[in-house]
Design a protein around this nucleic acid. Structure first.
Lengths: 363, 363
DNA sequence: GTGAAAGCGCTAACAG
DNA sequence: CTGTTAGCGCTTTCAC
């Protein structure tokens, strides 16, 4: 490859300068050059200048791979998410990338499509790559063998958005149970009696189901639990529930099913952006007006939620903060500084215009 | 760190097994073990079995860093985008990650916030990391020194979404000029005379301006050029234009300014999601009904565009295909197979319900 | 203040 | 079919 240099006009230029090239040009040893470049140890002032000049002249770029091999650390972290193109994950990942970068780490990103097999493979690849740590959005609420090597974690690990039963590692997630509870309480306070839950099951498989599928992640169970908690506390009627695959199409069908309930549901809690969009589409189709015929609250404060008419009430989660917290916790773990356990961030109910008040006058 | 092993119950287990450990356990040389594991060269059947068994027993995970150092290739590519949390970039990046993974590459992602200095730094870091190639969304339409080492590209490079003047490398982008042209022609065909352009300037700086800022990327100039082309071809009146920073707030102000034009603008082309949202918000505020008082077409087909009422007409760009194409071109370049130059993908005008027909009867 | 040398874990000649 | 060996480029004791 590089041997054809100099002949063709497209011939590769000579291979990048190495430390030894810099050392020779500056007429010092590799050790001295390394010290000057690395800014550690003792180096004479003029020697340092000479080395720096040589490095500049040669366009020297340290070979971080060699350094990593020597040091046993790569200054790289791995992020494993269900799907980077999903806005929740892309925002969280963006925050992780930035926080990690500030601490001198670069970030490798892999998708799993919420498929455990892909997650296992992703973790294997990242461990082979010798990342210094991992941030994972686990696709299973119970499986964690792939993180463990010989009774120990293969790498420092922080869970994001979801917890894994029995895995005692730091996890950054939001209080979705509380968020769902608040949303339902808002419905109840406004007089809604027939409430519907459109629950995204993060899983890529399945369509729409009336009962909770197996192996559903913690965010799903938390949100349902929170909603039911509110219902029970207020002795309200059981809500209609549909578990839907997290796509627009499935959400649409799910919403239609909810809206077809005998005493029609007048308020729906959608557990993510796709579910909310499904409700909007279904209502549009049925000629039902949001904020009037059907009230709606959705998880996650998307940019469009305040631009539409009526603007949508949401349970906002601090997504960037979540990513930052996960990255910070991971870097701490990598550096061996203390061990954060659980990082639970609060959600915030933002009531905009999509929840009608159907309260009758006090009789 | 690892030296405190065995004492505390949290003590790290012994360091990961190396090739030599596997070789010893299987009672063969490192070379033989490597051959068996790597599936190349000649190895006796039972020998191979023994090696594989030993590797399994030791939970051997090849050290890819060492391999990379030897091989001079890291099987890693770098992706440099303005902001991974932006839906366009996250979708494109998702496609890149998946395509690269299929070809055996993992992906490092860095953000620039459309800041050239950050871009330069990102490229430096990635080159130090010895990535095998780079996919960059350039933040400047003219600067490219940071990609060049000694008259040569530092690494195989593919541009994404935007072109750079004078830089002859493969670039994957969409025909935004054509897309804008079609959108304007739709307005014209429906009888709109006073047309507005709300143009996102990708730059993080600035607010709202009436004339084109300096150093704006190719997508911006392409879209404006396409729109003006359509206007000129039909001898229509010059459009009102606002260049806006790509945030909801700036877009909102920009839309308000457009809507305040003397003969009021009846149709607006928004050049991205944020701009469209700004128009929606502004219209909501002014009590103007989309698809009736104000017609709207936006670039990029977002999930919410079809769920709102009326659904929004858009210039759809094949985002995932764009990412795939960029990744494929890069991998080709890395492998030295041919050199794709420009990859221009077509846009598609999807007319939904946000463009009113204001045509008067033929007189 | 500077240099010599060992070695991180792996692979690819080259022998046998 | 299998073993020996020489590095890839860097850092880091340990001498001087």
């Amino acid at each position: 490859m590089a041997s054809k240099a100099g002949k063709k006009d497209t011939g590769q230029s000579e291979r990048p300068a190495r430390l030894i090239d810099v050392a020779q040009r500056a007429e010092v040893s590799r050790a001295t050059a390394a010290r000057a470049l690395g800014g550690y140890g003792l180096v004479g002032d003029e020697t340092r200048e000479r080395v720096l000049a040589a490095a500049r002249e040669l366009d020297y770029s340290a070979n971080v791979v060699a350094r990593a091999m020597r040091a046993g650390k790569t200054q790289t972290i791995g992020v494993v998410v269900a799907d980077i193109s999903n806005s929740f994950f892309s925002h969280a990942t963006g925050a992780i990338i930035d926080t990690a970068a500030k601490a001198g780490y670069v970030t490798l990103v892999l998708n799993t499509d919420d498929d455990l097999a892909k997650e296992v493979e992703a973790v294997r690849v990242l461990v082979e790559k010798r990342v210094d740590g991992l941030i994972v959005v686990p696709s299973s609420p119970t499986q964690y063998d792939h993180f463990v090597l010989k009774g120990e974690l293969a790498k420092p690990l922080v869970l994001l958005d979801r917890r894994v039963e029995g895995l005692r590692v730091p996890a950054a997630y939001t209080d979705d149970r509380g968020g769902a509870k608040e949303a339902i309480e808002l419905f109840l306070a406004r007089g809604h009696v027939h409430i519907g839950l459109l629950v995204a099951t993060a899983a890529a498989r399945g369509g729409v189901e009336a009962s909770q599928p197996e192996g559903v992640v913690s965010t799903v169970t938390d949100r349902v639990a929170g909603a039911l908690e509110a219902i029970k506390a207020h002795r309200a009627a059981n809500p209609a529930i549909r578990y839907s695959r997290s796509t627009l199409e499935a959400a649409h069908s799910g919403a239609l099913e909810l809206l077809a309930q005998k005493p029609r549901v007048t308020a729906i809690l959608a557990t993510n952006e796709e579910m909310a969009l499904g409700v909007l589409a279904a209502c549009g189709e049925l000629g039902l007006v949001i904020g009037k015929d059907v009230s709606l609250v959705s998880f996650d404060d998307t940019p469009w939620s305040k631009a539409i008419a009526p603007s949508m009430s949401v349970v906002k989660r601090p997504v960037s903060e979540l990513g930052n917290a996960a990255a910070t916790a991971l870097i701490k773990a990598i550096r061996g500084e203390g061990r954060s356990r659980k990082i639970e961030l609060a959600t915030q109910l933002i009531d905009r215009g999509s929840v009608a008040n159907v309260l009758k006058r006090r009789r």
